[in-house]
Structures are given as C-alpha cells and as structure tokens.
Amino acid sequence: MDTGRTLYVWGYLPRESWRRAELKLPISASGRVTVELEDPPLEADISVSIARSNWHVLFDESAGLIRVVRDQQIPEQLVEVADGVHLGLSGTVLNSFWLSPEFVE
C-alpha cells in the first residue's frame, strides 16, 4: 500500500449486472501503474473502491473478456499490470479495466 502500485483487480461483480458486447482487447503494453489519491485515501491493505462510481460491465463470452468501463468513447492506453489484468488509462485517469477470467463451475 505504501507504494500505491496496482497489483490486481478484485471484488464482487454479480454476473446479472453484465451486458453482452463484442469485445476485442486493444494492444496492451506490460507495465506498472501507481495510484495516487488524496480523497478518498487508499483503504488500508486493500484497494481503491469504484463502488460509488458509474461503471458499466461488458462481457464477451466467446472472447472470454470482461471490460469494466466508465466512458466507452474516451481514447485510452492499456497497461497489463498482471496476467490477464489490463488497466485502461486516459492520461492519468483510470477509465477501464479488462479481465480475462477463468470461470470455475
């Protein structure tokens, strides 16, 4: 937490809230992303919450991709911060994250 470095994405995301969409993962560079927040502060040993924001969850079953996005019209650059976890940045603002989840029945 002291470094603010993103390591992964986690949380509760009920499948009922996902909308079907055709998704293709854009080119993504491997790298590091550091989070700096003043308000609200980073939650101790946990994360940055997006629970109080308007995010849309898109899912492409055939591609095996989930995209959680604020604004689909904003151009962004993708950075892969962990295997199958891509952050979509518009300048210094997090606009989306892309996941390639493994589903276990």
Rank of each mutant, 00 (worst) to 15 (best):
L89F: 09
F103W: 12
V35L: 09
V69G: 07
T34M: 07
R15T: 11
L94Q: 02
G64I: 11
F59N: 14
M1C: 06
L99G: 06
L13A: 12
D71N: 14
G11L: 10
E76S: 15
A44F: 11
S100E: 13
G91W: 04
Y8I: 05
R32C: 00
P26T: 01
V85P: 00
A82E: 11
E38F: 03
P101G: 04
K24G: 00
G91P: 03
I27E: 14
A82F: 07
G91Q: 04
P101I: 07
E102R: 14
V35R: 01
P14C: 06
E102V: 14
V33S: 02
S90I: 02
R15Q: 14
L7Q: 10
L42G: 08
L25H: 09
F103Y: 15
W98P: 05
L87Y: 04
H56P: 01
A63Y: 07
L58H: 09
V68S: 04
L94C: 02
V9M: 04
D83N: 11
S90C: 12
W98C: 02
L87M: 06
Q77C: 05
E76V: 10
L87E: 05
V81A: 01
L37G: 00
K24H: 03
L37R: 13
N54L: 13
P40K: 05
N54T: 14
F97P: 05
S96V: 01
L23F: 03
E102A: 14
V93K: 13
G84H: 01
G88W: 07
G11I: 07
V68W: 05
W18E: 11
L87T: 03
W10E: 15
V85H: 00
D45T: 11
E22S: 14
V93S: 14
L58V: 08
Y8A: 10
P40E: 02
S90D: 14
A29M: 09
H56C: 09
R67L: 11
F59P: 01
V85D: 00
R70G: 03
T6D: 01
L42V: 13
R5K: 10
L42A: 11
I50K: 00
A82R: 06
L78N: 13
W55V: 09
E22T: 15
A29V: 11
D71T: 05
E80V: 04
T6K: 02
E43M: 13
L78W: 10
W10Q: 15
D45Y: 06
R52A: 08
S96G: 04
S96N: 07
L23D: 04
R70Q: 15
Q73G: 11
R32E: 11
T3L: 09
K24A: 06
L58Q: 13
N54S: 15
L65A: 06
T3R: 05
S30P: 10
S28C: 13
L94P: 03
E76C: 12
V68L: 12
S96W: 02
A82D: 12
N95Y: 09
M1F: 06
I66K: 04
W55L: 10
R52L: 03
R5L: 05
N54K: 15
V81C: 00
N54R: 15
Q77I: 11
R5F: 01
H56N: 14
E76G: 10
G31S: 06
P101N: 03
V48Q: 08
